[in-house]
Nucleic acid binder design. Structure first.
Lengths: 245, 245
DNA sequence: GAGTGGTCTAGACCACGAG
DNA sequence: TCGTGGTCTAGACCACTCA
């Protein structure tokens, strides 16, 4: 491994991280103001803010505009469970979810994802879930209009509600393909999720197809990168091992 | 969706992005120097660099210290294929891979991942792969010493070599669990992968277990977030649908 | 040595939250 | 209104690349 030049922000981040992990600053507590911290470490405010950005990306610190920087409770991590399975994590049950339903027509990338022609009728479900005060995740789910449920599923976009609907398809569900990327949030996403526009988000594109090869759902999920994981489990049965590859 | 305040860096990033997508700046070309761009947009250099950081995170621009900012060829994306399947992408065949083998003993998080007791003997394979000039990915693979292959597999850590080894296990491979996170690189990773220390990486933790429940491999993969995707495909067979959940 | 990006400074001004 | 974080400025100085 190559030796890197130690930068001031990492030295400061290491120091504050130590204070958090040794319990000198406890979970939920507020850090001193950025001006105080900057003068304490004798650096300028941008440099100190860079140090905090490191801790923010690690999920250790949560910045709240106008209030301060807080040590995050480490338990409040978001786990996305892939493969269409419902998550076992009971923490996700404490979500407050808002849904907005819009009828629109496919175009561009969306049409390509769903493998439908442009201007094909779709229904969009826009989910925004909160965990207590803080925003949790953002999801846009697109379904061909004729497959859209009549009732609005007031559930988390990856919880039992959606999974149950997919399990009851007439041609059964055959395949779920999920693509995970790290990218910066759009300015709108940063405001909605209340995260810094320089903090990466985990963007998951999920496409579900039935046995006929028809795409029955395309989902664009955005999770704050400082506290989100995506977990995928693949089972290799003995009789499958010969057929893979 | 909430309306966000347009920031200067996004306005500039949008403008340069347009110039790239309309072909006014072609792939592989160098952008004007940051000083020139800053004076052209009448902003300070940090603000202009923030704008470039947006484009860098999108994978549109590659920064090379001492040379300039270049428009990236969009085809050079890295696709990690999960589930232990080998990637079909032929692009991955053009990788140059270096391997370093180290013998060590488990401790802390590593012991927990492999579900072995501390100081249990392990073999570490440190992979660094390059695609032409530019670093491609970094991988640390840990295997219990008694399962480590005698020869050094000079292959990409997620290519056929590893998959073949896992397929030939005595107790057969039963499950692969992959956890995907977005985080900032450590300073060492930033230097090794030649990326900015403020650019998120895709960190994948992969744990493979055999039918006896023993962990046969733990892999820590780091991919540059500006050009890496991870794809997971789950097949839902008809007879499986009743047993899932 | 000339030109480039990387880091940092010491402020200014604006936006948000709570009283 | 006051204290907080968010954005931006106009430089300085260092590190890297290439001739």
């Amino acid at each position: 491994m190559i030796q890197a030049v130690p930068s001031r922000r990492h030295v400061i981040a290491d120091d504050i991280r130590n204070q958090i992990s040794t319990g000198r600053i406890k979970a939920g507590e507020r850090l001193p103001s950025e001006a105080q911290l900057a003068s304490h470490y004798t650096v300028s405010t941008p440099t100190l803010r860079n140090a905090l950005a490191v801790l923010e990306a690690e999920g250790l610190v949560e910045k709240i505009h106008g209030k301060g920087n807080f040590v995050r409770h480490p338990l409040h991590r978001i786990t996305y469970v892939g493969g269409g399975r419902t998550p076992e994590t009971a923490a996700n049950a404490a979500l407050r979810v808002s849904v907005r339903v819009t009828k629109l027509r496919a175009r561009g990338q969306l049409a390509a994802l769903l493998r439908v022609s442009a201007s094909s009728p779709l229904t969009e479900f826009l989910y925004l879930s909160h965990e207590g005060e803080s925003p949790h995740s953002l999801a846009r789910i697109y379904v061909p209009r004729d497959l859209a449920p009549a009732d609005v599923p007031a559930e988390s976009p990856w919880s039992a509600g959606v999974a149950a609907r997919l399990a009851q398809l007439r041609p059964p569900l055959a395949e779920i393909r999920e693509r995970v990327r790290a990218r910066l949030p759009t300015p709108e996403e940063a405001v909605t999720l209340r995260i810094s526009s320089t903090l990466a988000v985990l963007a998951i594109t999920r496409v579900a197809a039935d046995t006929a090869g028809r795409v029955v759902e395309a989902a664009l999920l955005v999770l704050p990168g400082d506290r989100a994981d995506a977990v995928f489990t693949t089972h290799h049965r003995t009789e499958e091992r010969g057929t893979e590859g």
